[in-house]
Design a protein around this nucleic acid. Structure first.
Length: 849
RNA sequence: GCGAGAGUGGCGGAAUUGGCAGACGCGCUGGACUUAGGAUCCAGUACCUUGAGGUAUGGGGGUUCGAGUCCCCCCUCUCGCACCA
């Protein structure tokens, strides 16, 4: 580690003409302690970095800190510290832990999103977005977490709960800052074709999240007042079957429409009741469908039908137009609602095989022929869809349109620990952006930041009170801060010129290094960070700041590290040492065991620090990659860790116990065709392993099979050493050279995974400098050739015999040899051969009756 | 409900992409050695029977000389989305 540090092994420089490789791991929130999630993430990244360095790439491997945000603030409150202090001390601790793990980074590019020299540029970018109309303020119903006392983006709400703390989210009407992400929906979707190096499931999740659907906007009219009431539908072919209209309780028209009507009080009471749980709470299938007649009606522009208008809890203000044309005959949800409230059901599409009447058991959602649909009667409904849209457009009743589920990104937060939004409110000039020369808008240090629901910065007069940059009048600053996902939406660009005080982005560096060749991180960011950073880059591209649209060429999502967790009814979650023979050692009750992601609450965490202290970083690194392909969840097993430790000890002693022989053999010509059989076989194993390890890494980073390959090579090498030391050594004069080659190859192949031991062994074997400057081993195709093969003989699909034959033997000769075999003959007795198939060097398959 | 992925020994997982299922590791069983170390080394370890066989990759069909792998039906689990009009 000292060598890597002293010689700046991981310092990356822009070298035009040299192939680059940008390997990036998702930067951590500085909690102060590494956990196994970091270990798997950053070990994968480090192995790729080292492998590609040996492959000759100019590799960039940066690291930084996602240091703003709620967790830092909450932790600081709990510990009675200022978030700035606890964040900085956590960064120190974690940087030291990372170095101990042996992960190689170019620390000269380190950044922290909470440092003014970073968030200055986050604010600068915000202003660019603002001027381009991509950042704007609007009043909207937003998700509110009462515990964290702040708003949340839709992406941060899970199952109606705060993604951070699990508290049920409420709905509030607030004026908030948004990024116009919805305007990028089409491109976010379209550019998927450029993301060939992304996992399919991440793209699928993004497709669902963006939620594109084609249909039409149709303008209904409120019969009594003449107010327009547009709806979005994906089934314009059913528009003649509308028998009522549903409107979201949040819809601005509701209050206006019922005002002064006899039903006002009742309707508004219902509206308040429906809104109480918040939008997300209502977005649940199992929620009972509730509606209330407003006393008003709407007119269907196509047939003039006047149908009742209902306030309904299943209508969402956040999708489409907030109003739904309801067609109970052809939509199951509308059907159930109509049944409940005794509303008419009007069939307008007949299935090809039968005749539906008004007494349906359920909605008919399939295809058929239009009926009771005016000029479209008799037309197949698929065809009618287009025709009806044309008809609607011609008459000015609406328009064919595409609707997206993706909403704008709510970026303001009523919390302290984030980048201040650089806007000033002037009584004369209104909303005024802070001039670029006045950036950063510094986050003041002395603020009472405990959450109350009001932005903490609002209670800091020194911060709030300012003058208008335009007219000089006394003015007030925006007191909300930015969502931390804003910070992390561009950090991969900032690494390229992290120390540059003159600009956010460096065009030359971006041209060379971008896009990111390999991004590694958790799947949990599929619809958050991984959409936000794409959107951000798209806008920066449109503004001419970056020369590409997609920042991440290849993405790898690692699995979780899990471990058995034990639960006792009486004593709750137990540590492993509190369980004995399936029973709780405290109360003797049987214990329930389950495999779960390592978590403090389930008491099944293993501390990387402790493992490194006891067994060394290499044991941990090797073990975490050994058992399971890295994209899959893995099960932590203490015994398995010991197995990895034992292997490294074996490798170590293989070198040290034989160091004299190994170094005497150095430089001797490698065993060739003229040498003895044992040497040729070891050499073949060596080159097979080089190929296998290289292929395994290239095949989606399957380090587990790469490692098992090296273990086999080391075992075979140790057998060769025993042979060499035995009496028959004279029969294998080339063995020392073959053993030397095998050992050296094993060390090189393992070096990205266990770099400390590999560097040490490499030096003991006479190497100079760092192993990272050595070329990755190449296999010699000639050495892979086998001389003899064992072929299986199948008779009617069952293996009946084995033949040892020279490799590459002709088909006829193989058949001959097979039929001559005594066991084969015995099994063929009394049968006639129907067919013989030879798979060269593998097997013979005989079909007989 | 929709979408994706996965079902292989006691466990984690291999399987050259249609070619001898169970590599490698853990665990377990014998044995060796001992400077008692999270030792090490050797042998064994899918199941049933052992003369030889027979049965096995969630279940059932199919294609094929040959299927864990391809096709059809079914079951189970995991993850994501979910009143999306």
């Amino acid at each position: 580690q000292k060598y890597w540090e002293d010689y700046k092994t991981f310092k990356a420089e822009l070298r035009p003409g040299k192939s680059k490789n940008y390997v990036l791991c998702m930067f951590p929130y500085p909690s102060g302690a590494l956990h196994m999630g970091h270990v798997i993430n950053y070990t994968i990244g480090d192995v790729i970095v080292r492998y590609r360095m040996m492959k000759g790439f100019n590799v960039l491997s940066p690291m930084g800190w996602d240091s703003f945000g709620l967790p830092a603030e909450n932790a600081a409150i709990k510990r009675g510290m200022h978030p700035e202090d606890s964040t900085n001390s956590n960064i120190e601790k974690m940087r030291a832990q990372m170095s101990k793990a042996g992960w190689g980074y170019d620390w000269g590019r380190e950044l922290a999103t909470s440092h003014p020299d970073y968030y200055k540029w986050t604010q600068w970018l915000f202003l660019k977005f603002y001027k381009a109309g991509q950042a704007f303020k609007k009043r909207a119903a937003v998700n509110w977490c009462p515990r964290d006392a702040t708003v949340l983006a839709n992406e941060q709400v899970q199952d109606g709960k705060c993604e951070r703390c699990g508290t049920p989210v409420e709905q509030r009407d607030l004026e908030q800052w948004f990024f116009k992400m919805s305007s990028d929906a089409e491109r976010l979707l379209r550019n998927h074709e450029q993301l060939k190096g992304w996992p399919e499931r991440v793209l699928k999740m993004q497709v669902e999240w963006i939620g594109r659907s084609e249909g039409a906007r149709i303008d209904f009219t409120v019969t009594e007042t003449g107010d327009p009431l547009p709806v979005f539908t994906t089934r314009p072919d059913t528009v003649y079957g509308v028998t009522f209209m549903s409107i979201a309780p949040e819809h601005p028209l509701v209050e206006k429409l019922v005002k002064g009507t006899p039903r006002e009080e009742e309707v508004m009471r219902q509206v308040r009741e429906m809104r109480r749980g918040g939008t997300s709470e209502r977005e649940r299938v199992d929620m009972e469908k509730v509606g209330l007649f407003t006393g008003l009606h709407v007119t269907n522009p196509l047939n003039g039908d006047e149908v009742p208008l209902y306030v309904a809890n299943f209508a969402l203000m956040t999708y489409g137009t907030g109003a739904v044309m309801s067609v109970p005959a052809h939509d199951q949800r509308d059907f159930e609602f109509a049944r409940k409230y005794g509303l008419p059901i009007k069939v307008v599409i007949q299935p090809p095989d039968g005749t539906l009447d008004g007494k349906l058991a359920q909605a008919f959602e399939g295809d058929g022929l239009q009926v009771r649909s005016g000029p479209f009667d008799g037309m197949p409904n698929r065809e009618a869809m287009g025709k009806i849209i044309q008809h609607i457009e011609k008459n000015g009743w609406g328009k064919g349109t595409v609707n997206y589920r993706l909403r704008d990104w709510l970026l303001s937060r009523q919390r302290y620990w984030g980048a201040p939004i650089p806007i000033v409110y002037c009584p004369v000039c209104g909303e005024v952006p802070v001039p670029e020369k006045d950036l950063p808008v510094l986050l003041p240090r002395n603020v009472e930041f405990k959450p109350t629901g009001e932005s903490p910065l609002a209670r800091c007069p020194d911060f709030v009170e300012t003058t208008c940059p335009k007219c000089g009048c006394p003015a007030k600053r925006e007191t909300d801060t930015m969502d931390t996902f804003v910070d992390s939406s561009w950090y991969f660009l900032r690494y390229l010129n992290a120390r540059d005080g003159d600009g956010a982005l460096d065009p030359e560096a971006m041209k060379y290094w971008m896009p990111v060749d390999q991004y590694i991180g958790g799947i949990e960011h599929a619809t958050m960070h991984l959409i936000y950073c794409r959107y951000f880059t798209h806008v920066l591209h449109d503004l001419g700041y970056v020369p590409f649209e997609e920042p991440i060429a290849n993405l790898f999502c690692q699995g979780m590290v899990c471990k058995e967790a034990f639960y006792c009814q009486e004593d709750k979650w137990l540590r492993q040492d509190e369980v004995h023979e399936g029973r709780c050692t405290k109360c003797g009750r049987p214990v329930h065991a389950e495999v779960a992601k390592m978590s403090k609450s389930k008491l099944n965490v293993v501390s990387p620090d402790e493992i490194i202290t006891k067994f060394g970083a290499d044991t941990l690194r090797l073990y975490i990659l050994s058992d399971t392909p890295p994209e899959r969840d893995q099960l932590w097993n203490d015994e398995g860790l010991l197995g990895s430790h034992r292997f490294l000890n074996r490798l170590w002693s293989t070198v040290f116990d034989n160091i004299g022989m190994l170094n005497t053999a150095a430089g001797k010509p490698p065993a060739g065709e003229q040498t003895d059989k044992a040497s040729r076989e070891l050499r073949r194993k060596t080159h097979e392993t080089i190929k296998r390890v290289t292929d395994s890494i290239e095949d989606n980073y399957h380090f587990n099979t790469a490692i098992s390959g090296v273990i086999e090579l080391v075992s075979q090498t140790r057998e060769a050493i025993s042979l060499m030391n035995s009496a028959s050594a004279s029969a294998a004069p080339s063995l020392p050279a073959a053993i030397r080659e095998a050992v050296q190859s094993a060390v090189m192949l393992l070096s990205p995974i266990v770099p400390h031991i590999a560097e040490e062994l490499w030096h003991v074997l006479g190497g100079k400098g760092t192993i990272l400057q050595q070329p990755w081993p190449a296999w010699d195709a000639a050495a892979l050739k086998v001389e003899e093969v064992e072929m299986a003989v199948q008779i009617n699909g069952k293996v009946r015999a084995h033949l040892t034959l020279p490799a590459g033997l002709g088909e006829e000769q193989v058949k001959e040899a097979a039929l001559a075999d005594e066991r084969v003959q015995r099994n063929l007795e009394g049968k006639a051969i129907v067919n013989i198939k030879v798979v060269p060097d593998r097997l013979v398959s005989i079909a007989a009756k």
